[in-house]
Nucleic acid binder design. Structure first.
Lengths: 339, 339
DNA sequence: TTGAAAGCGTTACCAC
DNA sequence: GTGGTAACGCTTTCAA
């Protein structure tokens, strides 16, 4: 195929000035209609594509937005990326993805990288480790639009897209109680994260509203949200003198770990122990045996976050806004009625 | 925080020429040791970061590689991306991800996009629809290094990273036979893809080597590799007068669809029907009830593909090479011995 | 309506 | 060893 065609090539071919070509192609006023058409036709014919580096250099804003996610291999996140990407593309933006690998230090690097690229805005989800938000404050102070999703912070200054965390946990526990479970355990995560705190509150409130005691030894809290932690938490819970008869795990990975550990002990779900996890559409479909899960509309989370960011980019005066994307409880076999 | 610091700012501050600063920072020869240190210190202090657009404009090669994948939400692919990304970063390259959504037309767009960005090389996996390779030939003809993985083409001109497809299918069928299954069905996919063809050959050869007949009605072939197809294929197989007693599904998604359909009919796995799928590490861990799967080292596929590409980028004379990443058969409950 | 020229931040090639 | 200068491809004044 051809070498890259520049604006100069078109100008030369047509005997006009490069600046005229630029104006014509960018739809700016001040080019005669006939000439404009001629230029456009030639650009098409020569398959002209603007050099993004030249454009990026000369413009403040090369229409790129950055994403910071904890990881890319979890379907929850990749599906959100998908939602962001589609929305961004539809609005003429491209997307750069960076991964914090759930680490605070790497999250700071991500910000630096995106800053270098001069992204017009950032969509981020906090790493598990992050409990200090200075690096994000700096971003905001620089005037770079910033939107958080799922695990959020600085909500007074940044828009955010979150799940209805407290309600979802409340509803899950309510469901367990309605199905005859009485000693409901809770497997949480890093306490400084909003999602953990809120889900925990939902759990506690549901117990209280049903006049059930809240036993602190049934709450395994402040642990990294990993597969291993899920298994470990279950080991701990099953070592109790009075074992729980159900477990709410507040995160996909924890839930999978919990499920695995329960089975490895030859305990039956839901007979011996009921289990509710958190998950997204895909896993709600695949994972077996039929795990009741709080399910997220991940793609929508992504597209809404991107919408909020673009709105903020186009109008710096818009007020921060928190959008709640409702979850729904997908009831399956793992919490079947007792007796 | 500060506005972006340019090389000029440093030069001004130190009373030297911009070109000198550039040379010092890039480790090029021709700068006095003392001055070089002074410049470096100032760059650090001012938190100087080169403007990637300026660099990209002036250099032929802004150290970016492009990825074209069928989708990002399948763990198989996102894990490969992860492997590519880490390897790229470790070598000073950044990565741009494009998604074909399994569509031929969009795949062509991906190539255009990457071309616009002037990527130094491309790592690609063919979309399901792709059976014509002109668009990739163009890339090669332009001299842009290209490496394929999993679903490959143009292997005489491009390096590729593939799984041991025939062997894996052979081994899976062998395993089924050893466990007492006799009427083993096959659920395939788009025939023009190398992976489909090879896995199919493995299936047939295993039957033949064990003196078992190859029934064409037990082979559901040339279908899109979707969840729905998996279900449909099973419906078709179970409608046969002589039903299969085991199924080999040659792709993750097909396998999940198959599993789901089998269960919805209240058939027991492995008692009524044995099932082997293809999957990757994550799903081999999560998916239940214990599905025997051919498992891929996805992260490694990505990192090896990236290695091959970088080698090719740095030396245009390297010969195309096909690296086979072995799979392994993860034997679980879904193929337990009969009787 | 069009063209010329400056400039975005960087590198590379020449002089000195 | 160091400084000037052109060049990368494009947009955007400013003149004409």
């Amino acid at each position: 195929m051809d070498k890259h065609v520049s604006i100069k090539d078109i100008a030369l071919k047509l005997g006009v000035a490069p600046s005229t070509v630029s104006r014509a192609l960018n739809g700016n006023s001040g080019v005669g209609k006939a000439l404009r058409e001629k230029i456009k036709a030639m650009a098409l014919k020569l398959n002209y594509k603007p050099n993004p580096f030249a454009v990026g250099l000369v413009k403040q804003t090369p229409h790129i937005i950055g994403i910071i996610i904890p990881d890319i291999v979890t379907h929850f996140y990749s599906s959100i990326i998908s939602g962001i990407g589609d929305t961004a593309r539809a609005n003429g933006y491209s997307v750069v993805i960076t991964t914090s690998y759930e680490q605070y230090e790497l999250e700071k690097h991500c910000i630096d990288d995106l800053n270098n690229i001069r992204v017009e805005g950032i969509i981020a989800c906090l790493s598990q480790e992050t409990s200090d938000y200075k690096h994000f404050e700096n971003v905001v102070n620089q005037g770079v639009p910033l939107v958080f999703f799922d695990r959020v912070c600085l909500t007074d200054r940044c828009s955010s897209v979150v799940a209805d965390n407290e309600r979802s946990a409340y509803q899950a526990v309510q469901h367990l109680i309605a199905n005859g479970y009485k000693r409901i355990a809770y497997i949480g995560g890093n306490e400084h994260l909003n999602i953990v705190d809120q889900r925990r509150r939902g759990y506690v409130r549901a117990l209280a509203d049903n006049c059930l005691p809240v036993y602190s030894d049934l709450m395994v809290d402040n642990l990294p949200m990993t597969y291993k932690s899920g298994r470990k938490a279950v080991r701990q819970l099953l070592a109790l003198r009075r074992r729980p008869d159900a477990i709410l795990a507040i995160n996909d990975i924890l839930a999978f770990g919990a499920m695995s550990e329960i089975k490895s002990r030859n305990l039956q779900i839901p007979t011996d122990i009921g289990l509710v996890g958190y998950s997204d559409e895909l896993h709600a479909t695949f994972v077996e045996p039929a795990l009741t899960t709080v399910t997220h509309h991940t793609y929508e989370i992504g597209s809404v976050a991107c919408d909020l960011l673009l709105r903020r980019i186009n109008d710096a005066t818009v007020k921060p806004k928190s959008v709640v994307i409702p979850t729904f409880l997908k009831i399956r076999a793992s919490t079947a009625k007792r007796r």
